[in-house]
Write a protein that binds this DNA or RNA. Structure first.
Lengths: 253, 253
DNA sequence: CGTACAATTGAGAATCCTCAAGAGCAGTGG
DNA sequence: CCACTGCTCTTGAGGATTCTCAATTGTACG
């Protein structure tokens, strides 16, 4: 899934902040036009990153933040024995590299799930700008707060005990993120494999597959490979919170 | 468990940043003496909070950060049907309220697990100071980065499939945090109930209890109610990573 | 069209949850 | 000082869920 249509895909990485359709979701949010232009001067556009290419590796010195411009990414931590644990997925407008803020060294590896583009923001320049532009500092705090609450959502998702609850929560969180991007909240394509989802949720890929099949049979969603269509949003929310089927999830809402 | 001995307990909340033994773990880290004093001027000391008292409630307007000075806290999110999900536990030197940075409204409730003290930092004043003191802004970024990597540790813990792996990871993460505070990494008291741990890990409290009993029988740890003694650190790490029993965990290390 | 990879489906085994009862500990009041 | 109460924690047994192993189907790509 791509944020831009096929025809302009090749030029996405050349668009600068003032013209970027994601600016309202990204760091420029809340900034005045002049301030956005200032921010744009420190942003480096990068060449497109292809599927299965790495953005950076765990342990790399990482002195930049990366904003997803188009496409999607998966982040994971590798243990000493080589086993991977997926930490999360990144969609357009979201910032990667925040985990390196502590020691200037990345704690995870980030890999592209499809051909994607990013903006690179050198942390040193960004910190300088934050001192000069109070709005930018506020926005940085908001973005960091969003990352933290987003991690809390993941913790809640993983703490749910049954596989069906985890899958339902996973789909609802994705749905909300796509809606925030201006896409359909009920119809989207998964850019990650069943294996990725299983690893992320602490399940076997067979269980993930079976849960999709069951939700499909029950008519709650329609699954066609990686294409997902949510037919009954209330039912999906009801799976997570059986007591109040039609109510809004506090952390989904 | 308390960071201060019984005799000085009642005065902990009066100690200011320049004299606080936690300053190296908290916001003053990396600041010059003069800057620490500046920071101290915006810190409000609060009266001690007793066991089961709330620091703040989910949904409250929250325009402060809170640093744990002594004692410990539990944070949780309440669903519409009243069910709780524990998000994490806070020990001395750790910052609470970061989840409210996004919208100025807390997304979780925080409750004291024992008699505890906190420092209150108004966000507006803190932001001003950050603009004036580059070192403080850097430290804020480090602290936020730490919070994010700490959340990633939780995600890894929860993604582990078996109950024994979750419990082992939980104990290792706690051990590391106590060590960072200058306490023993092999002997400490849990300040939270089995129920709290179970809820946090997405397990039933019976399973938590059984896992403790098994680890006790195997001699890996000694459990006496809430008192924990780690007898074989390598074995505990081996449970999390069966392939390399004596190796260091990348995310624990 | 064939190969490689991803996804699905099935069956048996292991793990964990639920329900239920018993044990240990702290605080209260006689 | 001791019994009582309430709470937490532990232990047991049966049932449900999920994992593992294995085979099959489906899809993408050269």
């Amino acid at each position: 899934m791509s944020i831009e249509g096929k025809t302009v895909e090749s030029n996405v990485h050349k668009i600068s902040c003032p013209d970027c359709r994601l600016s309202e979701l990204c760091l420029p949010y809340g900034l005045q036009q002049k301030e956005v232009q200032q921010l744009a001067t420190i942003v480096k556009s990068k060449r497109p990153i292809h599927s299965n290419e790495y953005l950076y590796l765990q342990g790399d010195a990482c002195l930049n933040l990366y904003a997803v411009k188009s496409g999607s990414f998966r982040s994971f931590i590798t243990d000493d024995d080589g086993s991977e644990q997926t930490i999360g997925f990144y969609l357009p407008g979201e910032l990667m590299g925040l985990d390196a803020l502590q020691h200037g060294r990345s704690t995870c590896t980030i890999i592209a799930l499809e051909t994607s583009t990013v903006c690179e923001l050198p942390l040193s320049r960004l910190n300088e700008l934050c001192s000069q532009i109070p709005n930018l500092q506020h926005q940085m705090m908001r973005v960091l707060g969003k990352e933290i609450t987003s991690d809390h959502d993941k913790i809640i998702m993983l703490s749910h005990r049954t596989a069906k609850e985890k899958i339902a929560t996973f789909l609802l969180l994705l749905s909300r993120r796509y809606a925030g991007l201006g896409f359909s909240s009920t119809e989207f394509n998964l850019t990650m494999s069943r294996q990725d989802i299983a690893n992320f949720l602490g399940l076997s890929n067979e269980t993930v597959s079976r849960q999709f099949t069951e939700l499909n049979k029950d008519g709650v969603i329609t699954v066609k490979q990686r294409g997902i269509q949510i037919n009954n949003m209330a039912s999906l929310k009801g799976i997570v919170k059986p007591c109040l089927p039609d109510d809004q999830l506090s952390f989904i809402a």
